[in-house]
Amino acid sequence: MAQAKAKASNKKKDLGYLANLTKGFIKENPIFTFMLGLCPALAVTGTVETALGMGILVIFVLVSSNIVVSLIKGFIPPEVKIPSYIVIISTFVTIVGLLTEAYAPALHESLGIFIPLIVVNCLILGRAESFASKNNILNSAIDGLGMGLGFLGAMVLIGFFREFFATGALAYGVYLPLGVEGSIVNLEWYLLSIAVFSGPAGGFLVIGLLLGLFNGISIMKRNKKERERQKMIEEKKRIALERKRQKAMESAGGNA
């Protein structure tokens, strides 16, 4: 009996971890739902590789800072919570900056000022304050990873559309130290090369269109749910009415 209880509890916990991990993918996606971290989303998504690079760096900083904040949350006096988080985050950003310059210099050059600017990415401070400072280390790490993956996915999606429409191709190995260079897709379809997508205006356009798309899907889902709810209410009403009518008939028959 106790064994079965423990098993059920573990299963529940596993489902909790999974939900914690996946919530950032779509439901609480930092960019498309919370609209956090829009500055790098506009600035470094000109190519899939730079978007991917920035996403990886953000995951590293997010997971590390969440772990440390969760680890020392009990020791930090409330008056200096935010400055302490900023010091922790900026430490990891500096580390990530040095590591990138050492091991992926092309990415470092390409991301440039946006690496130090990870410090002010609202997503990272937001998760430290709203999640890591209230949860245990494992959950905080999973939250950081999930949110980071959601951020990375959104960045790559934006980068995919921008690079593809701007160049007609998707290159690899240019900024990331993959060892080989080439293109996954290269349509050489110059009619598709719309230069505006490589600039900041293209970033706004793509993010706007994707936000519209995600909001549209979300509204459609909500409407569908609402329609089903209405249907269910009407069905319940109908059943209740029928029961009432039946009862009335029964009582009328009895009287007769």
Binding site: I76, P77, S84, V87, I88, T94, I95, L98
Partner: peptide, 18 residues
């Protein structure tokens, strides 16, 4: 003390990576 400890760990980590 808390700020000093956080600062010291930050400094050490950055120095090590550097």
């Amino acid at each position: 003390v808390v700020l000093l400890v956080i600062g010291a760990f930050s400094g050490l980590s950055i120095w090590g990576t550097h």
